[in-house]
Design a protein around this nucleic acid. Structure first.
Lengths: 150, 150
DNA sequence: AGCTTCGGTTCCCTCAAGGAACTAAGGTAA
DNA sequence: TTACCTTAGTTCCTTGAGGGAACCGAAGCT
């Protein structure tokens, strides 16, 4: 948790950042997604302090994005896996990958590529409207108060 | 900047977080997007420390997501506006809104709604494949090394 | 001359990040 | 049964970023 608690703000961006926006947290989620599931492997891959990693994992399990899963009875050992809530957060990270590839990758190009199962092509995500399927960027919408407006 | 510099890592998620992942930064971008463009207005709306706000704005201008724009000659005053790079970062924040609405909004419902210009309906973003237009979530892709793999 | 607005900067305090060392529970080899 | 290894943390200390309040400077307003 940063100094300010974003999780209680009446804004979905703030709450998302409160749950998964602390330093390292998105990278932990990415690593678990690509199959790095164990404490020592995460620590080695990220180069993160063991103390901070333990805090982040505890927070993510408490928040419901990760779950602990035993992979060995003797000795008893747990690994971390994405829950459905965590899987869906990958949508946010894939949007972040798209943006980072476009604006921060430079001439060298993106470090990883995504091959879409359905069509077999190298692709990136595009945001479209859930109702009509047309492109939906920030310039394509009006913002208006919702049920729980402040 | 957090202690660790994420902007130089060979990962678009890390670089995105390095540029726009510090505490408050996504909320500053959201506010500028919805038309809160001036220092004092941002400070009042967010309740952020003036010191931290000044740091964040400077960082976002340096990174190219925001630009300063004069809105008064006498007295000389600037306001902040999203660049194209900043506008496109809104795609990430809209994905975050979608996730936050689904998983953290609770019974009260989302605080804000988005009306899509093209179809006029209340909608949220769905990620689709840039090549075939079918849904593209993290479970729909294989990850493979790109041109600038580590 | 004095008050207000805007857009910051400066100062100080606290608490989180980073890093290294330590711990604990069990397994393996001699 | 002694010694060492692996895994998954915890503890301790130092440093530096976040928070808050006060201050500042340029311009306008009365």
């Amino acid at each position: 948790m940063q100094r300010t608690d974003f999780t209680t703000m009446n804004c979905s961006i703030a709450r998302s950042m409160g749950v998964a926006g602390e330093p390292w947290t998105p990278l932990v989620i990415r690593d678990v997604y690509i199959g790095i599931n164990r404490f020592d492997d995460l620590q080695r891959d990220l180069g993160i302090s063991r103390k901070v990693l333990a805090e982040r994992l505890r927070h993510l399990v408490d928040a419901g994005l990760l779950e602990r899963r035993p992979y060995s009875e003797r000795p008893p050992r747990d690994e971390y896996a994405l829950t459905e809530m965590g899987q869906e957060f990958m949508d946010v990270l894939m949007a972040m990958v798209r943006w980072g590839d476009r604006w921060t990758a430079g001439d060298a190009g993106p470090p990883v590529l995504y091959r879409h199962h359905a069509c077999g092509k190298i692709a990136h995500v595009e945001p479209v409207c859930s109702e009509c399927g047309e492109p939906m960027h920030s310039t394509d919408v009006d913002v208006q108060p919702g049920p729980h407006a402040s």
